[in-house]
Design a protein around this nucleic acid. Structure first.
Lengths: 221, 221
DNA sequence: CAATCCCTTACAGATATCTGTAAGGGATTG
DNA sequence: CAATCCCTTACAGATATCTGTAAGGGATTG
């Protein structure tokens, strides 16, 4: 079993709960914890320099802002940074996110080894995840339906650019002008119109306002 | 100090963390925990019937849905239900919510005794809150600026009705018709227009789409 | 009780949104 | 290489949005 684990999680109660559970259930000798991404990064870097590296990182995605200046602003940035200095480290993400396509991206881009969705069985699932990841397998919380995700409509970069500008209060004419200035193509108002109308169909929205409401609520923009 | 406490919190890790911390720090003899609102309610009811009531409830606001049928769907509903059977019980809410006006409402309507915002100091704050609430004082996490809230624009019921319909894709004309049918007054399209325009100013939005984006992101609708 | 304030409502005019039609052009197919 | 498909673009017409003006009416103020 893993001997040295780091937990990065900004909620003190959750952090504490994980440490306690892992100490009791899995008998891991060294569990350290950090409340900030930057500190977690430094700790992993130092451990590696001292030839006593961490074997597993358990991290959240969202970290609350506060007055402290920080370079790494999210679990994703933390993982990216750590993977460049210690690519072999195992990573399990423990977060509230339940959007399958976002979790899929974590496995594909961040090359994580396990995903545990915070909920009524987090701790049991986390123990299971650690067990499987130790054996070079992957783990995803059963509540996340990774299969049905194939039918879900995917927003590409162009769609997202349009949607973000709309949520920012720009009219389609203004977006067309902005795209032309920034050499984003296609850029005609008509094409933007067409794209947004297609999204109405995909997401069952009657107009732009409802579309933005749906996507904002789902955290897609 | 309190002798009998119930914790209602659906995240197993958080729940576990709170129980551990309170056992160690405050030496409270009886700490029970529940992952569901309905079960928390029953436990409090039974304890009261047996003349061994809980003295303090620590609860979250949001509870994840799952396949289980449930009557009480949120911490707020749980508090309301409990206050009707045991008005004297002390209540501390422990949640991610950081909107001052929503927290203010909890104190005014749900008559809670303390509010702890989940974060890097949750456990320390929770211990402090329990200590103060035991002495019949109230507690609010310092990060919540309850004072500046006075300047924050408040959405009344009428504003909310309009905004929810807009987010649901109805045009202003359709909203006017719906209001007339449901005898919600005022109901003219012109008045609805005016209200929404005022909200543009309040929240710095250029149009309806941006307004709904802002309010949805902030969780106000 | 007259003046004032605030809310509701109507209406008008300039834009913006939404839907549908159609043309053109690059890429793919047979 | 002709046919087809898909994407981009333009344009038109019906609605919807947004802003501003103004009238009326109830509540408050002096």
């Amino acid at each position: 079993m893993f001997k040295k684990i780091l937990i990065a999680e900004d909620f003190q109660d959750t952090n504490n709960g994980i440490v306690n559970a892992l100490s009791n259930k899995l008998h891991i000798s060294e569990i350290q914890e950090e409340l900030y991404c930057d500190k977690a990064y430094n700790r992993i870097k130092v451990a590696q320099t001292n030839n006593d590296p961490f074997e597993l990182l358990i991290t959240d995605i969202l970290f609350k802002e506060n007055h402290v200046d920080r370079k790494l602003r999210s679990g994703i940035e933390l993982i990216n940074a750590i993977k460049t200095i210690q690519p072999s480290i195992k990573i399990i993400v423990n977060s509230m996110e339940d959007n399958p396509s976002k979790i899929k991206t974590l496995f594909e881009k961040q090359k994580i080894d396990g995903y545990v969705c915070k909920g009524r069985h987090s701790l049991d699932e986390l123990a299971e995840a650690i067990y499987l990841v130790y054996q070079n397998n992957t783990y995803v919380s059963p509540i996340i339906n990774m299969v049905s995700n194939n039918n879900v409509f995917v927003l590409d970069e162009f769609d997202l650019s349009i949607l973000k500008e709309l949520a920012d209060g720009l009219s389609k004419k203004e977006i067309a002008i902005k795209f032309k200035i920034n050499n984003i193509t296609p850029s005609s108002e008509s094409t933007i119109d067409k794209r947004v109308s297609k999204l109405f169909d995909d997401f069952g929205a009657k107009n732009t306002t409802q579309l933005i409401a749906i996507l904002t609520r789902d955290g897609l923009i």
